[in-house]
């Protein structure tokens, strides 16, 4: 799964999340530093981040509320969002205590989460143009994504990659809207970052396994093991 177990993960993080240390409130500091590293170095370890999310949201209620930092929770959610369309964002939401997510709850954190949830829904629904419009619609969004280095570029790269899986050719005007760029900037992104050509306003996406849509025949794979039980039974019953 996207953003789940990155190669960059150091051993001391593995030993926290794979052992009982994952329940130790003392691990919060280490995991927060690790989250900061992910934000700065543009990779994502949601397995570790969910451990942190549980420790810090449960701590809010059980240990000392002043330990909870809202930006830890929102940063984790923004990181999860950059892994679209994988279910990372919803997996993170599921472990946030229900009362924080409730439609009736007020306060800065519930409001921030519901804003991020709207953004994620647009990414999941491939409504990329709407995503950029929403992101621009409120200054709060800029604050929420401020800690995540290269947030906009990460989103653009994923969007372009996903588009390349579905399109052989796509109008530059359409792709520009999806990338949240004007046509000149989009042209630069497409030719320089993605390395694709543009002819007559059409972006030519190189062939890949996804955008071929080849005709295929699904045949049943038959192997000996499928029959092992019945053969054994025949053997046992005659013996």
């Amino acid at each position: 799964m996207e953003g789940e177990d990155p190669q960059e993960r150091p051993d001391y993080i593995s030993s926290i999340i794979n052992g009982l240390e994952r329940y130790n409130p003392e691990a919060v500091g280490t995991l927060e530093d690790y989250l900061r590293a992910q934000c700065e170095q543009r990779y994502c370890d949601m397995n570790a981040n969910r451990t942190l999310l549980k420790l810090s949201t449960n701590a809010r209620y059980q240990l000392n509320p002043d330990r909870l930092k809202d930006e830890v929770i929102t940063n984790i959610l923004v990181k999860a969002m950059t892994c679209f369309p994988s279910p990372q964002f919803s997996l993170a939401l599921h472990i946030i205590p229900p009362s924080i997510l409730a439609p009736t709850s007020r306060g800065e954190l519930p409001e921030a989460i519901s804003k991020l949830r709207e953004l994620d829904t647009q990414l999941q629904g491939a409504q990329y143009a709407r995503f950029w419009a929403t992101l621009d619609s409120d200054d709060l969004y800029a604050d929420l994504v401020a800690d995540i280095d290269g947030f906009e570029e990460l989103i653009r790269i994923r969007t372009a990659t996903l588009a390349s899986h579905a399109f052989r050719e796509i109008e530059i005007s359409v792709l520009a809207e999806w990338l949240g760029l004007d046509e000149a900037a989009a042209t630069k992104f497409v030719t320089e970052t993605a390395g694709w050509k543009i002819e007559d306003g059409q972006v030519k996406v190189p062939r890949n396994a996804e955008n071929e849509a080849k005709k295929a025949e699904v045949r049943e794979d038959v192997n000996v093991e499928m029959f092992s039980r019945i053969v054994r039974r025949a053997w046992e019953e005659t013996a």
């Binding site: 399109f167 052989r168 796509i170 071929e212 849509a213 005709k215 295929a216 025949e217 699904v218 049943e220």
Partner: peptide
């Protein structure tokens, strides 16, 4: 499966061959 070329959608449908092993095993059982 499908892929788009601008506004043209190319569609392909995989033909699924009959699955016989399960049927065979159950009748044999």
């Amino acid at each position: 499966d499908y892929a788009m070329q601008g506004d043209l959608i190319h569609i392909s449908e995989a033909k699924v061959g009959r699955k016989l092993v399960d049927w065979y095993l159950r009748n044999l059982a």
